[in-house]
Nucleic acid binder design. Structure first.
Length: 417
RNA sequence: GUGGCUAUAGUUCAGUUGGUAGAGCACAGGAUUGUGGUUCCUGUUGUCGUCGGUUCGAGCCCGACUAGCCACCCCA
């Protein structure tokens, strides 16, 4: 029996890694232009980091965490998400004391023990960004606008930005009561699942997919009608600023988030191309989280996007790969020895080039060059070594020119640029 | 955790009523001694997911297990 990777843990193979690099690069560029800096955080944390922040009763904490005791019986957990870790670091390192507003982004693997399926894996990757120290709606609009800008830069269209407001603790409490009252009045029509949710997490009814529940939603009370004046004003300003930034959005008062720490603004970027996994990015405001980590009261907002899902949406026809520019086809020991040194000089000049390790036939070496999609092939055979010349072939036009081996490094640099 | 589908060469898949395996792609070599991506020829590759059962005989039938995919739940 061959040893295989752990279920839901995937290799990112050489043919796919250019896409990942492309996405990372665009993310870095875009986020930097909005004033964000990268923070690199650990993959393993003490379990309480997540248990406390995400919510004890959420599925993530209840049944999806990779938790294990270390050799000293301390409970550790492979991070299921990034925000809680960033907040822990923010408080621990007193980042709040450095600047009034701090903008951070991160990139890396997350772990959740779920049954894998399309667009969902046990190890998956997120790119996330957080703004600390800004309660103003301008921050909400800016970060949502940034993520949409990022998707545009990556080349994705047809995505929808859905926004909602969950209000503050007080308005949510009021709304929950209203919703429970409404649902209790229609007890016989709600699905089994929602009957269970009624006690545990009634808001979940709003994203139930059962037909009977869907009908009930039409007349269900909207959270947007229940939020207090201050929360309503905040939401209104967010919308105005989004308009000002020309960022289209849709209001979705049935959007609920899976993590407990959100308040006021929440948002999702959705696609209709991924079946059940329609959320490509999601986030929201979490004004209370820093305090939960014993830090100073610091309003914050952030999001995370799923890289695997993004890659599933990426244009497969586009070429993300960087090819080696030059292939050296060398025939015979003398030419090969010469080429081996030449290739070293060219690489030092930052020209990407390759040659074969064995003295294959010219046909075979040309085939290899074609496979590599090299732009040019430098042919040096026994004849060329004798005459002190080399042939360079442009692989797309098939034009070949010959030149002497004197000062060949500079000639190639000129030719290939 | 629940359900459906699948498991044969590196890969994609054929495999007829059960008689111990085949194709395309890929890879390697060649088609007037040294010129690629198209064409043609030749060649290499398999504990037919694992274990057990039925049978004279199992890739094919039955059972269990494992893995993968898809959906539910939930989520990025």
């Amino acid at each position: 029996m061959k040893i295989t990777a752990v279920k839901g843990f995937n290799d990112i193979l050489p043919e796919d890694s250019p896409k990942w690099q492309f996405i990372e690069k665009i993310a870095r560029n875009t986020f930097h232009s909005y004033g964000f800096s990268e923070i690199r955080i650990p993959i393993v944390e003490k379990t309480e980091v997540f248990a406390r922040s995400i919510g004890e009763a959420t599925d993530i904490v209840e049944k999806e965490m990779y938790s294990f005791p270390d050799r000293n019986d301390l409970s550790l957990t492979l991070r299921p998400e990034g925000t809680a870790v960033v907040v822990r670091s923010f408080v621990q390192n007193a980042i709040y004391a450095k600047k009034p507003v701090n903008k951070l982004y991160y990139f890396g693997p997350m772990f959740r023990y779920e049954r894998p399926q399309k667009g969902r894996y046990r190890q998956f990757h997120q790119i996330g960004a957080e703004i600390f120290g800004a309660a103003e709606p301008m921050a909400d609009a800016e970060i949502m606008s940034m993520i949409m800008r990022f998707f545009t830069e990556v080349g994705l269209t047809g995505l929808s930005l859905q926004i909602n407001s969950l209000g503050c603790d007080e308005c949510r409490k009021v709304y929950k009561e209203k919703l429970v009252e409404y649902l209790t009045g229609h007890k016989e029509n709600i699905c089994d699942n929602c009957t269970r949710r009624l006690k545990k997490n009634p808001l979940r009814f709003l994203d139930c997919k059962a037909a009977s529940c869907n009908e009930l939603k039409t007349n269900a009370p909207s959270i947007l009608d229940s939020i207090c004046g201050a929360c309503a004003d905040h939401f209104k300003s967010v919308k105005n600023y989004l308009d000002a930034l020309n960022t289209p959005y849709e209001i979705n008062d049935q959007m609920v988030r899976g993590l407990d720490y959100y308040s006021r603004t929440t948002f999702e970027v959705t696609t209709n191309m991924l079946g059940a996994q329609n959320a490509v990015a999601a986030g929201g405001r979490y004004d209370k989280l820093c305090e939960m980590f014993s830090g100073p009261k610091t309003p914050a907002i952030g999001f995370a996007l799923g890289v695997e899902r993004l890659i599933l949406l990426l244009d497969t026809s586009k070429d993300y790969e960087r090819k080696t520019k030059l292939f050296i086809a060398a025939l015979g020991q003398e030419a090969r020895d010469f080429s081996f040194k030449l290739i070293n000089q060219l690489r030092a000049k930052n020209i990407s080039c390759e040659m074969t390790y064995s003295d294959n036939s010219l046909k075979s070496q040309m085939r290899r060059a074609g496979k590599n999609e090299s732009q040019h092939v430098l042919i040096i055979g026994e004849d060329e070594m004798k005459s002190g010349s080399a042939i360079i072939r442009d692989m797309s036009t098939k034009e070949q020119t010959s030149f002497s081996l004197d000062d060949i490094t500079n000639k190639i640099m000129e030719y290939c640029s």
